[in-house]
């Protein structure tokens, strides 16, 4: 029962975060890339205020998989860096904590882009 409850929490948290994005898409002139940026920045700021950690504790992957989670990782990294190495940690911490995601997205993405061709839509 607990496991099922956990899945439900992940589903609902992730779903709700996406619904906010959908409402932004449908009611404003914002395009998807702008919404991604808004999400990362919002995730970062919420983390700084200490409001995102409870969402992560509740929703698990439901809160870390959406891009707000990317902002969360970046800011968390910078804050941890600050604790360990002071101001240098702020400079390196963000990229350090998100290094895997960014590296893979760019390098694997590069490989994919070199292999595949875009298809015309019909």
């Amino acid at each position: 029962m607990d496991a099922l409850m956990e899945l439900l929490k992940v589903f609902v948290t992730g779903g709700l975060i996406c619904v906010i994005g959908q409402i932004l898409l449908d009611t404003t002139n914002l395009t998807a890339p702008r919404i991604l940026v808004i999400y990362v920045v919002a995730g970062g700021l919420l983390t700084a205020l200490g409001w995102y950690q409870p969402i992560v504790d509740f929703g698990g992957s439901g809160a870390t998989v959406p891009l707000t989670g990317f902002g969360y990782t970046l800011v968390k990294g910078a804050l941890e860096g600050l604790k360990k190495e002071g101001i240098l940690g702020v400079i390196t911490g963000g990229l350090k904590s998100s290094a895997a995601g960014i590296s893979v997205a760019l390098v694997f993405g590069y490989i994919i882009a070199l292999i595949f061709n875009p298809k015309a839509k019909d």
Binding site: C18, V19, Q22, A32, P66, L67, L106, G109, I112
Partner: peptide, 25 residues
């Protein structure tokens, strides 16, 4: 189909990395 449900998660970010790159091969 999924709208923001597919573009807001990290997978949407991954998609927006590759999609423009593919076109400029």
């Amino acid at each position: 189909l999924g709208g923001a449900g597919c573009s807001v998660p990290i997978t949407g970010f991954a998609n927006s990395v590759v999609a423009p790159a593919m076109e400029y091969k």
